[in-house]
C-alpha cells in the first residue's frame, strides 16, 4: 500500500480448494484464476455508481474500472487434496465461483490488516477500496 496515495497493490495470492475429483487440472486452475481476478476487481476497483438524478456515472470503461492484467498478481493455486464428492458418480465438485467467493473478503481483510499494522485504527472500508477511499480512511483514522 502506498501510504501517500492510498493505492493498493495485491502482491501475491494463494488459493486452496477442495474440488473433489479433478478431471482436467489445467482448466480448473484457470477457472480459479478467473474467479480470483473477479474478486480482486470487486474488492479494489469495480464500481457501478449513479448520481443523485439516477444518471449512471460509470457508463463506459473510461470510468468503470475493469480489472486488467497489471492489477492482478501471479497466483498460487492448489486443488490437489480433493475429497471425492459422495453425491455424484464422478466425485466432482463445482469450481466455477470458488475464486470469486473467497477473494473479496481476503483482499479487504488484507488492506485493513495493512492499515492497522501501520498504526491506523481502521476497521472497515466499503468496496471498492479505491485509492481515494483508502486515503480517506487513513486520514480519518
Amino acid at each position: 500500500m502506498d501510504p501517500e496515495t492510498g493505492k493498493v497493490r495485491v502482491d501475491r495470492m494463494t488459493a486452496v480448494d477442495d474440488f473433489g475429483n479433478v478431471i482436467n487440472p489445467m482448466v480448473v486452475t484457470g477457472q480459479v484464476h478467473g474467479g480470483l481476478g473477479q474478486g480482486i476487481g470487486q474488492a479494489l476497483v469495480e464500481n457501478t455508481t449513479y448520481d443523485e438524478n439516477g444518471q449512471l456515472l460509470s457508463a463506459s470503461y473510461m470510468d468503470y474500472t475493469m480489472p486488467r492484467a497489471d492489477d492482478l498478481p501471479f497466483y498460487i493455486v492448489d486443488h490437489s487434496k480433493g475429497n471425492p464428492c459422495t453425491h455424484n458418480p464422478l466425485g466432482v465438485k463445482g469450481c466455477g465461483e470458488a475464486g470469486a467467493i473467497g477473494s473479496p473478503p481476503t483482499v479487504v481483510n488484507a488492506v485493513i490488516d495493512a492499515l492497522q499494522s501501520g498504526g491506523k485504527n481502521v476497521t472497515h472500508i466499503d468496496m471498492p477500496m479505491t485509492p481515494h477511499r483508502v486515503w480517506s480512511a487513513m486520514n480519518n483514522a
Binding site: T5, K7, V45, S58, Y61, M62, D63, Y64, T65, M66, D71, T130, P131
Partner: peptide, 9 residues
C-alpha cells in the same frame, strides 16, 4: 502521473 484507474488518463 497518478492514473485514474479506469481510463488510465
Amino acid at each position: 502521473k497518478f492514473v485514474q484507474p479506469a481510463s488510465r488518463f
